[in-house]
């Protein structure tokens, strides 16, 4: 078990903007920490620097309190699962899992025991003689996890391990992966661009954009108290509405909009929103109503179980609870304290 820490980590590829632009980050011991951001934000580069696959331009990486910046990956006591799983195509599943042990010159009998143990945890005992190309995506992912687990590393580094699975399989894989991490209790750093994965699995999420951490916090903190407009609009689908008012941006989530009379019993001050509906999407479990508020585009989301009239072309008197309103500086996009 170990804490992973980065201090002022910078990665510059050639000229131009840095891919990773001075990141200070510390995981807790045994934590499931998610690095979330759009593609090209530097999250994978950050992970590769932690793993030792990419030398940083500046700054340090610490694992378990030890500075490992100049150590090769094999000396860092880490294991990594890649987006493509990167299984060795010419080796059987058993040999794939045993490869890190062979590299560490573990005795043969011990190797077999460890392989059986790791295969048992991931439920792939029946696949040990197969080749990677004979496996499904989900099975490959488990083999990759078993290969990562077998060395009992201090840290797991996972680079979008679910992105090659189909949508159905992904939901159950999320569940399995988190259960697995809880069981082994190893500090895990997980890179994804998928907010559902991040919200669903992370103990904490670091939202990254343009090489910098925009916010670090629990899924609830990130969603309910976004630090800036990037975080506010990157998380949530559809994202937070931002309405310019008095030199600020007024932010509220689509699910927080409701007809006035429905919110009156909720307890709390109401802020009226005049909502001009333009279009409606029926999505089964919910309805999305697109429209305009004070000239800016906005979305409201209603559960299908609640009957809210919202005909395109008509204006409605909606409201938001004052505590659900966030204020952002129009120029910097940063959160501004105080009531709306």
């Amino acid at each position: 078990m170990a804490v992973v820490e980065t201090r002022g980590l910078v990665k510059q590829f050639g000229e131009g903007a840095a891919a990773v632009d001075g990141i200070d980050l510390a995981s807790a011991d045994g934590e499931f920490l998610v690095l979330l951001g759009p593609s090209g934000c530097g999250k994978t580069t950050l992970l590769r620097m932690i793993g030792g696959l990419e030398p940083p331009t500046a700054g340090d990486v610490l694992i378990g309190g030890r500075v490992v910046t100049n150590l090769p990956p094999r000396a860092r006591q880490i294991a990594m699962v890649f987006q493509s799983y990167a299984l060795y195509p010419h080796m059987s599943v058993a040999n794939n899992i045993a490869f890190p042990l062979k590299a560490a010159k573990v005795p043969k009998a011990e190797q077999e025991k460890k392989v059986a143990w790791a295969a048992g945890i991931l439920g792939i005992e029946g696949l040990l003689d197969r080749r990677p190309r004979q496996l499904s995506g989900g099975q490959r992912q488990r083999v990759a996890l078993a290969r990562a687990l077998v060395r009992e590393p201090n840290v797991f580094l996972l680079d979008e391990p679910l992105s090659n699975l189909d949508a159905q399989r992904r939901a159950s894989a999320r569940d399995e992966l988190q259960g697995f991490q809880r069981r082994v209790g190893t500090t895990t750093i997980y890179v994804t661009h998928d907010q559902v994965e991040a919200m669903g699995m992370g103990d904490r999420i670091a939202v990254i954009n343009q090489g910098r951490i925009r916010q670090l916090g629990t899924p609830r903190e990130i969603y309910d108290d976004p630090a800036d407009t990037f975080v506010a609009t990157f998380l949530g689908s559809p994202p937070m509405n931002l309405i310019p008012r008095n030199g600020h941006l007024l932010g509220f989530r689509p699910e927080h909009v409701a007809p006035r009379q429905m919110l009156e019993g909720a307890g709390g001050d109401l802020v009226p929103i005049h909502f001009l509906a333009t279009r409606e999407e029926y999505l089964g479990a919910e309805r999305l109503v697109y429209g305009e508020v004070e000239g800016a585009k906005a979305v409201a989301r209603f559960p299908s179980t609640v009957d809210v009239p919202a005909e395109p072309g008509r204006g409605y008197e909606f409201a938001v609870l004052a505590r659900d309103l966030k204020r952002f500086d129009a120029a910097t996009g940063l959160r501004v304290a105080g009531p709306a």
């Binding site: 696959l53 990956p73 094999r74 880490i78 990594m80 987006q83 490869f99 560490a104």
Partner: peptide
């Protein structure tokens, strides 16, 4: 990714050459 995986898995130059690169 395969080369990176071999690096992370602790294989040095010769082990990577003999067990990964040449077979592939």
């Amino acid at each position: 990714d395969v080369k990176d995986a071999a690096n992370v898995d602790g294989a040095g130059f010769w082990r990577q050459l003999i067990y990964i690169r040449i077979p592939l």
